[in-house]
Every structure is written in structure tokens, then in C-alpha cells.
């Protein structure tokens, strides 16, 4: 496996990180590459990862950490059992990762839909059966999605602990979209089964979110 460290010439900590990882890589027989962010290879990689901070560490092509690690932390990262793509622990960078960017972006779409719906519901339609639909476009589509995006982005950085990434956030997102849309459509179409299915899917997305965030708040070592 390959260990890549992205560094910058103007970053005083990068030398420290390079020392730690050069030793750790040699000890474990990994290939070790240092990439300068000012050079084309480093810049291209940093751009692909949306990287805003150095030093940044990739193990097997996956962004695993930013900042300087102690030799002990380096060892833990190398031996972390969670290497599989579907259950990956990952640090968050300064910029939004694509999953969190999409949570935030789509939250705004739901906000506009909800506002429009409530406005039309009270002004043009006298029947209020659709009220839970528009209210949950707001509470689920906007509030819940904002919490998904912001909390997954901020909590790993507040605590310094990695979060479950890989396909988990996308599964959470897919369930949430299907859930909210199904739930709202169920009320609008008067289809009770659709409401229940939407409710259950939304709940599952919340359960995945809790599963991802829990180890950020309560890491195993602590």
C-alpha cells in the first residue's frame, strides 16, 4: 500500500509530519511519497480532494488525516481495521466534502418548496390535509438536511475524531430523499402506505446518521 503526504514549502509543521510518516512507512514496509502542493502532481491531488489544509495524509489513495500526527497516532491509522470502502473512517477537511455539500445544497431546495407549499396551502387551498406534507418538507427537507450536512462537517473537526464515510453518507442521503419525498407525496396523494414508507425510510436515514456520528462523539479509546 502507498502512503502519500501532501505538504507545502511554507508550512513549518509539514517537516514534522514528514519525519513521523517516513519512519512509520519504513517500519511497516509501505511505499512513501511526499507531494508538494506547489507542484503539478500535488496540486492536482489537492484539487481532486478539495483540500484546504496541509499536511494531508493519504493511505491507499484515501484521505485519512490532516495535520501532524504523533508516532502513536500514525501507528493507529496504519492499523485501523476500518479500511474497507463501505465502512471508512475519515477526517473532514476545511472545505465541504461532496456529501455534505449536497446535503446543504438540497436543503435550500426543500426550504423553497416548503415555503411555497405553505404559502399556497393557506392562501389558495382551503383543505388542510396537506399541512403535514409541507411542514415536513420544512422540518425534514430543510432542518434535518442542514443538520446532516453541518454536523457531519463540523463535529469531526470539533473533536478531532474521524467519521464514517465511504458509502454511508450516500445511503443516508438516498434514504432521506426517498423518505421526505415519499412522505410528502403520500399526504398530497392521500396514500397512507406511501406516508408510512416515507416515514420509515426517513427514520432509517436518521439511524445511519446517528451510527456515523456516534464514534465521532465517543471514540473507542476515550
Amino acid at each position: 500500500m502507498k502512503i502519500e503526504l501532501i505538504v507545502s514549502g511554507v508550512c513549518p509543521f509539514c517537516l514534522e509530519a514528514e519525519k513521523v510518516w517516513r519512519v512509520a512507512a519504513a517500519d511497516h514496509g509501505f511505499e512513501f511519497v511526499v507531494l508538494d502542493i506547489a507542484q503539478p502532481e500535488g496540486a492536482a491531488l489537492a484539487q481532486r480532494l478539495n483540500l484546504q489544509t496541509v499536511p494531508a495524509l493519504l493511505i491507499g489513495g484515501v484521505l485519512r488525516a490532516v495535520g501532524v500526527q504523533s508516532p502513536e497516532e500514525a501507528l493507529t491509522l496504519l492499523h485501523s481495521p476500518r479500511q474497507e470502502a463501505h465502512d471508512r473512517m475519515q477526517q473532514m477537511g476545511f472545505a465541504f466534502s461532496p456529501d455534505n455539500r449536497w446535503f446543504i445544497l438540497t436543503a435550500q431546495v426543500y426550504l423553497m418548496l416548503a415555503g411555497l407549499g405553505l404559502l399556497m396551502n393557506s392562501s389558495f387551498l382551503s383543505d388542510n390535509a396537506a399541512r403535514p406534507a409541507f411542514m415536513h418538507l420544512f422540518t425534514l427537507g430543510f432542518m434535518l438536511f442542514m443538520i446532516y450536512g453541518l454536523a457531519s462537517h463540523m463535529l469531526p473537526r470539533f473533536t478531532g475524531n474521524p467519521i464514517r464515510e465511504g458509502s454511508w453518507p450516500w445511503l443516508q442521503m438516498g434514504l432521506a430523499h426517498c423518505g421526505v419525498i415519499g412522505y410528502a407525496a403520500g399526504y398530497l396523494a392521500g396514500r397512507h402506505t406511501l406516508i408510512v414508507v416515507g416515514a420509515v425510510l426517513t427514520w432509517l436515514s436518521l439511524a445511519i446518521f446517528a451510527f456515523r456520528v456516534w464514534p465521532v462523539l465517543w471514540p473507542e479509546e476515550a
Binding site: A151, L155, A199, T202, W203, L206, A207, F209, A210, V213, W214, L217, W218
Partner: peptide, 13 residues
């Protein structure tokens, strides 16, 4: 934040 998650799951349930 942890208690919030528990309330969220409970409220949904």
C-alpha cells in the same frame, strides 16, 4: 448532541 440523536430516533419512532 448525543442526547439529541436519541430524541431524534425516539421522536421518529
Amino acid at each position: 448532541v448525543s442526547i439529541a440523536l436519541v430524541y431524534g430516533l425516539l421522536g421518529g419512532l
